[in-house]
Design a protein around this nucleic acid. Structure first.
Lengths: 222, 222, 222, 222
DNA sequence: AATGAATGAGTTTTCATTCAT
DNA sequence: CATGAATGAAAACTCATTCAT
């Protein structure tokens, strides 16, 4: 805790304050309260509230980008399952849900704020390229049949992002029944993506790694 | 224009103000400026800002629900194409994009506001039921193969909602190439849904109506 | 009192607050305290502190200009004595001293603020023209010998303004002895101007009206 | 440069900061920015901002007093021309104008601040005594006719100070025409003082040194 | 029904000052 | 000596809400 740099402390405080208050109602005082620092100190490090929030978004997205990029040593079929599995939010993932909610609020500020919009663009680019590259690699490796990798990636991401948005905005009550189990919206969507989008394009003799195992693996890493 | 009731005028003003300022920065003065009325009058009709916004969201979703529900006299394969086609946003649809952006901002307020959350729930329920019902009707009518209608609907909606969110937050620059044409994110996603999700579950001898024609038809209605 | 308009009340409050605090230390709260209104109301009537102060300066100078301009029906020798007599500040003139002190502070803001500078220019122009015109009229009427009216006016005003500045910044302690009486700096300077600058340029047979009588007259008017 | 003591550096920084920002808007940070030192260091040397500014004013006035006092070995008629010539500000004298503007702002703080007022008094005393003494010396030496030296000095200084105030607050645009040349307000006033106040009191056979030559001489010294 | 005037509570931001190093 | 970090108090300004008319 106390070995965090001040900047890290502030970023943590922004994150906590966003989770408690939401973006629209967020005040500098809220952030100061979450850190153990004064409002003045926030202004000492960041000239304006906007500067602070832009810095926060930057750090957020940079972290996110790093998480997306890892595990690139795996075969394509594992990487694509990894990719989609990372979108699964369990009801216990309070922090991650809050994080994505905050991100969603900032995303909706994009059209009103150039600096935010640029950051979002950068990050979106990476997300789509990553998914597209994995699929393209899979085609080249003979794991997937020949499909338009870019468009398949676009569909994938739309579904994953949409499921996540719905889950975090509507709450976990919003579940989907599968074989008697109640799945979160993201979990159910990942299952559907695997069975209705990715399995149909698998080459003969190929199979996807187990989602269950992949989720367990990701859990272990975290 | 002038035969609008005051309430209608106010609702229009809220909509306009949201489009100009976004939810986070929206003030009562902004709304008053968009109407030709005074701030005081807004308070005369709605006790608090929250009351006004909840009323606005209610009206918004009610309108939306009515639009979803219509054309129920059509056969299932037409109704499902109708359903997905309604999500397509062209670059010219400035107003609708702004509308959905405002809605997105309000959606992200759900977790912080019970009254907003309830409304969102109600509307989401309807959306998923509608899609599920159309697919279930199609199965019963022998147009679709037997699939889990609820889960397919969930995937559909996740993808449609996600595509729309990405399009409105990232701007129309964010396009997807198809056969040399540049499609908006929503349009491309609808195409993918049709070819990768709906066509594969069509019964033999069955086909989907043309998206092009359906879009033209919806356009005519509006 | 209570029949003042709100704007008048605010202007009075600015004046009072300036006298108590000086320009450099003046806050909106100070002004609100002097009026019986809230800070918010000041912002309701004037968007910014600068707007308020510019409006105040405008009113100040406009009033001042009107005072300068009056009594224009008199002969030139009376008008010039009037003109210089108006600069005399007695030790009892607390309000007027405070007023000119506030004005002095605002004058020193001119180089930093375009809007203030413009107002000062306007007013200065008038002051010099008025003095110059009186002298020119006097020359034409044969009351004064032929001198450069513009330059004589410049000297006159420099001395009058300088004397006033010294009196208000250094306090009334700063007096000048004349025939056993202690005169304020402005009073002494006016006497000197009359005897050393104006009397020497009087045409033969002409004389200046009594300062004493003129001061009494101005007093009666006020 | 680097052989300045820290105190000298700080005084220079105060002067620079005053010229850039004016007294009313001056902050400790502004001063720190002009020096290459930190805000903290300013407080290490001067407990409070007021202490610093009072010290600055003290140094300012002390310097000024020394300049007034010099050249006391000259004959009275040269010394009085010297005295008035020192008030001339050419349009090129940016620094001196800024300096006097800062001083003017501090002068207008006198009524609100005892420590500042005392300093101003001290300095004003000296100024008037110096002028009075030169004239008294001139009378004794038979250069000037017998006049009230104190009162003539008061008029002189009022005019000189007033001209300077007007010139620095209204800008150099505020010129006065003389024989086709545009003179600054201070220059024109000095000319008028020489011809209308000092020359009339010269004893027979006496004449004043040339202003032109005196200005050149002062320039050389600086 | 409608509004201009008014305000209190709160927002971002500023700034002189302090303190640990 | 010197500084970066930190803060409390107060600054300008905002805004939902109220009230008299």
């Amino acid at each position: 805790m106390s070995d965090e740099t001040v900047d890290e402390q502030i970023m943590t405080a922004v994150s906590d304050a966003l989770q408690s208050n939401g973006y629209a109602a967020l005040t500098m005082q809220d952030i100061a309260d979450e850190s153990e620092k004064s409002k003045s100190l926030l202004h000492y490090h960041y000239d304006t509230k906007e500067d602070l929030l832009v810095a926060f978004l930057d750090q957020l997205l940079t972290d996110y980008e790093q998480r997306i990029a890892c595990r690139s040593d795996q075969p394509p079929e594992q990487r694509i399952v990894d990719f989609v599995a990372r979108f699964v939010l369990t009801p216990e993932d309070d922090d991650r849900a809050a994080f994505h909610l905050a991100l969603l609020e900032m995303r909706s500020q994009g059209p009103f704020n150039d600096r935010i919009r640029e950051q979002l663009h950068r990050s979106d680019q990476l997300l789509r390229e990553t998914a597209g590259d994995i699929i393209a690699d899979g085609i080249e490796a003979g794991v997937f049949e020949t499909v338009n990798s870019e468009r398949t990636a676009a569909l994938l991401i739309a579904a994953l992002d949409g499921a996540r948005t719905r889950q975090i905005t509507l709450g976990d009550a919003n579940t989907i029944a599968l074989d008697g189990m109640e799945l979160t919206y993201t979990r159910a969507t990942v299952e559907e993506i695997l069975s209705q989008i990715l399995e149909p394009i698998l080459a003969e003799e190929c199979s996807l790694p187990s989602l269950e195992a992949t989720l367990a693996e990701l859990d272990r890493e975290a």
